[in-house]
Simulated scan of single mutants.
Amino acid sequence: MYKLLGGLKDYLKWQDIVTDNAVFRLHNLFTTVLLLTCSLIITATQYVGNPIQCIVGKGLPTHAINTYCWITSTFTMPDAYLREVGSQVAHPGIDNDYGEEDHKKYYTYYQWVCFVLFFQALLCYLPKYIWDTLEGGLMRSIVMGLNIGICREEDKCNKKKVLLDYLLRHVRRHNMYAIRYWICEALCLINIIAQLYFMDHFFDGEFFSYGLRVMSFSEQAQEERVDPMVYVFPRVTKCTFHKYGASGSIQKHDSLCVLPLNIVNEKTYIFLWFWFIILATMLSLLVVYRVVIIAVPTVRPYLLHARNRMVPREVAAAISRKTDVGDWWILYMLGRNMDPIIYREVVAELAKKIETAASNTP
């Protein structure tokens, strides 16, 4: 198992230069690894047993029936979930269909789960790919190794001078840098909401309320409750197989099919339900937070000061007042990547030079 999943650890490695937000990384990296891990575990049937095992009558090839029921579909009778197991029905949802096709609930998703999870992982990684392409290594270039405080004084002074020259030369030209990143954050929220709707459609409208039903299951009366995990991910289903008899007439064979894979599926998707709800909430709050930063400029000095307490509030206020939101964002991200003492010196010198330049402007 370690060899199977060990390659995913590279996605979670520590980053020496940060160009994004922690919630952004939770969506792009952690969720991607989580979905890929679930897909690999479900795919590796040797770790979870045979995906389907059907009970067949004499004269029928077991392997053929298993394959047929796996690639077509199996079904349950929803009315049978409310009947007592052992006396009225053999298993939850298993009963005679009496030829009533409209009363059957078919399950065809299980053969697609591993592919869907892999596709979801690609969608979660897409915003990071877009941002890395747009960012182009700008933050790493302007940091120039100043994230390490122990360095030669001469090298430090030269790098500080280059950084200050860059910031002064490109003042009020970083708006698109910030806007592109914030659009990628909004894309994360759109992706999660779209995936919630997609999974609800994938499970025939059963996913949105899945987690809530699981939580309320234990509070319901024993004779009235239906285990939502068994209802959405049944462990035992039925499958109908038709074949020709010796005289050429069509024979119908009912089989009980055990789905061990659904034991893994039900645990996987209850965790994904809670994680996607939590992540959607965090991303929604993050988008609101970005709107506040754009719409209320007075909060920027407080955030810049909070990023590095060694930067005086009056310096943070002067910087925020004389620069656009894109320049402010560049300075804010520099505070996350540079040595705190070096960062304080850079911001103080930048504030003086911007004030001087503004006073010399007629």
Rank of each mutant, 00 (worst) to 15 (best):
F75S: 05
K159D: 02
G136C: 07
M139A: 07
D102Q: 11
F118D: 06
E153F: 09
Q88N: 10
Y109T: 06
S73Q: 09
M144W: 05
S73I: 08
N96E: 13
D132H: 04
A121K: 04
L122D: 08
D95S: 11
W112K: 15
V85K: 11
M144C: 09
G137L: 03
Q111R: 15
G149H: 03
Q120H: 10
V143R: 01
E84F: 07
L163Q: 13
G137T: 01
K161D: 14
R140F: 00
Y107N: 00
P78R: 02
Q111Y: 08
D95R: 10
V162I: 13
F118T: 15
V85R: 04
A90P: 00
K160Y: 09
K156S: 07
F119A: 15
R140A: 14
A121R: 02
F115L: 14
L117Y: 03
Y68V: 02
I71L: 03
G136T: 02
L146S: 04
C69Y: 02
T76C: 07
L164G: 01
S73L: 03
V162H: 13
C157S: 14
K161H: 13
Q88D: 05
I94M: 11
L134M: 14
G149M: 05
D97S: 09
Y129S: 13
L164N: 06
R83E: 14
E153P: 01
